[in-house]
Design a protein around this nucleic acid. Sequence first.
DNA 1: GCATAAGGTAAGTCATTACTTACCGTAACT
DNA 2: AGTTACGGTAAGTAATGACTTACCTTATGC
Lengths: 102, 102
Amino acid sequence: MTNASVGFAALGDPTRLQIFERLARRPSSVGKLSERMAVTRPAVSQHLKILKGAGLVSVNQVGTRRIYRVEQRGVELMRKYLDRFWDQALAAFKDAAEEREI
Amino acid sequence: MTNASVGFAALGDPTRLQIFERLARRPSSVGKLSERMAVTRPAVSQHLKILKGAGLVSVNQVGTRRIYRVEQRGVELMRKYLDRFWDQALAAFKDAAEEREI
DNA sequence: GCATAAGGTAAGTCATTACTTACCGTAACT
DNA sequence: AGTTACGGTAAGTAATGACTTACCTTATGC
């Protein structure tokens, strides 16, 4: 993930999150993915491009098919990013009594 | 968080993520927040509304000022949600040899 | 009461983006 | 070589969203 907000934006779209959830269950080809989806195959392809750009999925080609799968590293980075928020918020909460510079 | 993608969408905007990062460092009023920001105060106010709708921040009023702070519970829910992805992706990876229904 | 400070909301605008259809490239199979 | 399967990309459109200025409400100060 270049920028953290890229990852969040990628999962921020409902259609894209749905794709991501299905890939988390099992890796899949583009065609198989778009079968049970409300949008067309090209739309799925465009969403996959964005997820890939965010480092959240990866592809490997087998024959004419591209098998997409969840990229563990991307998920881990987002988790770590939220952990930072968690820690900072806890620290800020401990200083709450001060409330200076508000 | 009603829907998971709402949380991701909330942090998906760079301006909103910047606001969230500053609130993680310390709770702040709207006016103080918008001082060092590139956008106007009403824009910040609108972003805060979205962050609040996503359950990521909360407000308490003191005088005429509204003090916004990070809502720990929201961050925790997003972490938990990513954990689920993590587990599922691991499980799916273990089944990788099968590759059926692709 | 009147003035000031703080911030939410309305309305409008411009940019982004999610989607469609049409098209093109590539890999396997006969 | 021709055909079929698979999927990425281009181009255009309609909807969404981030931003602005203007306005209104509420709370504290005199």
